[in-house]
Amino acid sequence: MFKFLKLVQNENMKSFRRFSTLVMFIMLLCALVFIGVVNKHYETHDSNKTWQQQLQAENHDLQKQFKANPDEHTKEALAINTYRLDHALKPTDSTSFWGSVKDAVNGMQFVMIFAIIIAGGIVSSEFGSGTIKLLLTRPVSRSTILLSKYVSTLFTLLVFGVACFVFSCLIAAALFGFDGLSSPYLFYSEGAVHEGSMLLHIFGLYGLQMVPAIMFVTVAFLISTVFRNTALAIGLSIFGLMAGSLVLQFLARFGWSKYVLFANLDWSPYFNGNGPFQKGMTLGFSATVLAVYYLLFIAFTWIIFKKRDVAA
């Protein structure tokens, strides 16, 4: 076990001591600063009204809407707004600390791309540079080497995710201060509004982003191992990341499309009350489908890597 951690440490050293990795962190920081500054710029918008007046106006509209078309969503929004007014809880919009941090969850799109870039090169670059020969002629089995690379890839993803969160907190504090730090996360369940921890809510959002992130990273890792081609691994994975939802729209009319990988990556509908992609899909269903894909990817990657002759 100790030795395995050293192998992961090796892989981390190789990834994090690359100049390109540093550039990725800087790009992530820049992107988050940009989001923050844009939000800050629109802060003054509509500021002649207090947030109470704004919410009352919003509720007025929502009530009209509810009368015309009574649905669960409108009811929830109304209940939460009313709760805010009753308990003097300012909404966490983009110009509050938590609102800004919540917006920055979108930074996970960058994190995914960066993690794919690292995953796509972690095996193939060793073949490309020929270093694989020195790496594999050690008293360590090939599966262990591959596992250390995979664990290191997931670790990198985690580090990028944590960086995204930490950067966004710092930026939010710098731009908006700690206003509303204690405000809770409000959610509607079983006919009543409840208060939850904002921090946990945001961690939950990150968690939801991690599901596709892990799948795409695993796909990039697979392609990198099987084809030993970094460009192909990164290109195909990012294409999947971008085109996934498009493909899904096209396939939505087929019943079997619920078994497609892309259809099961977004778990947010199971938590925010939006309907799932296809009727009958549940969290358990998506988790099972992804688990099957995941195990297939992993098994395929390992079998190929173990058998292969190294001619690099």
């Binding site: 050293k6 540079s129 020195l134 008293p139």
Partner: peptide
Amino acid sequence: PELYKHLSGYRNLIHYARMV
């Protein structure tokens, strides 16, 4: 002898030292 070019010679050796 293909080694990790973006690392120092010393870190290359540490890398292999960790494997045994």
